[in-house]
Measured scan of single mutants.
Amino acid sequence: TTVKVNGTKYKFDTPEEAQKFAKKAADKYNLKVVVDGDDLRVE
């Protein structure tokens, strides 16, 4: 599972880890998590 934040992709072994990271990033930058198929985007 990958998470894309500000054009940078981060790869995670499990969707749970990816979800946690995406949520933290979204909170930090005051953005929202967008599900894109198997991957997540923070925008």
Rank of each mutant, 00 (worst) to 15 (best):
T1L: 10
T1N: 07
T1R: 10
V3A: 02
V3D: 00
K4V: 15
K4N: 13
K4M: 15
K4T: 15
K4Y: 15
K4R: 14
N6I: 06
N6W: 14
G7C: 10
G7I: 03
G7L: 05
G7P: 01
G7K: 06
G7H: 06
G7A: 05
T8H: 13
T8Q: 13
T8S: 08
K9N: 10
K9E: 12
K9H: 11
Y10D: 00
Y10Q: 00
Y10I: 05
K11L: 11
K11C: 13
K11E: 09
K11G: 04
F12V: 00
F12M: 01
F12P: 00
F12S: 00
F12K: 00
D13A: 13
D13Y: 07
D13F: 07
D13I: 07
T14H: 04
T14Y: 04
T14P: 01
P15L: 13
P15W: 14
P15F: 14
P15D: 05
P15R: 13
E16P: 02
E16H: 07
E16Y: 08
E16N: 06
E16G: 08
E17D: 09
E17N: 06
E17A: 11
E17W: 02
E17G: 05
E17Q: 11
E17M: 08
E17R: 05
A18K: 01
A18N: 00
A18C: 02
A18M: 02
A18W: 02
Q19F: 15
Q19M: 15
Q19A: 12
Q19V: 12
Q19W: 15
Q19G: 06
Q19L: 15
K20T: 11
K20Q: 13
K20S: 12
F21T: 01
F21C: 04
F21K: 00
A22L: 05
K23C: 12
K24H: 12
K24T: 11
A25C: 15
A25Q: 14
A25N: 07
A25E: 11
A26S: 06
A26H: 03
A26Q: 04
A26L: 04
D27L: 13
D27F: 10
D27Q: 12
K28G: 06
K28R: 12
K28P: 04
K28T: 08
Y29N: 06
Y29K: 04
Y29H: 10
Y29L: 13
Y29S: 05
N30R: 09
N30A: 08
N30L: 06
N30H: 12
N30D: 09
N30K: 11
N30I: 04
L31W: 12
L31A: 13
L31D: 04
L31S: 11
K32H: 11
K32Q: 12
K32N: 09
K32R: 12
K32L: 12
V33Y: 04
V33C: 07
V34D: 04
V34H: 07
V34S: 07
V34I: 13
V34C: 07
V35G: 06
V35H: 09
V35K: 10
V35C: 10
V35Y: 12
V35N: 08
D36A: 06
D36C: 10
D36H: 06
D36P: 02
D36E: 09
G37H: 05
D38W: 08
D38K: 12
D38V: 10
D38R: 10
D38E: 11
D39Q: 11
D39P: 02
D39A: 09
D39N: 10
L40A: 03
L40V: 06
L40D: 03
L40F: 09
L40T: 03
L40H: 02
R41Y: 09
R41M: 09
R41C: 08
V42W: 03
E43S: 09
E43L: 09
E43R: 06
